[in-house]
Amino acid sequence: MEVKIRAGALVVLFGFLLLAVASVRPFASPESTAMDDYFIQNAQEETGSNNVVTSVVFDYRALDTLGETTVLFSAVCGIFTIFIGRKK
């Protein structure tokens, strides 16, 4: 009985995902590309990096990367606390 409920939920979610993907804009032609075109045009003279993804990660969105490394660091601190933080 419970298995039937879960399978029904899975089927409903499959329909939802199919509807969502059918209503998303078509593949390989994004609509608004103004920000990314600005990055591609100006990344070399503003950040001095050939790799535009690196210039976005480490210069335009450096605070985002700071939060990302904070997440990784706090996850490692959590594992550290779980395993050997409880010594008496």
């Binding site: 590309t33 990314d36 990055f39 976005v56 990660v57 969105r61 997440v71 990784l72 996850a75």
Partner: peptide
């Protein structure tokens, strides 16, 4: 577009942290 790739880099690292935890 470079911005989704940068955000995917963020997402990969956060996935890794979540899975390790």
């Amino acid at each position: 577009l470079p911005t989704p790739q940068a955000l995917t880099l963020t997402s990969i690292v956060i996935n890794l942290a979540i899975v390790a935890l």
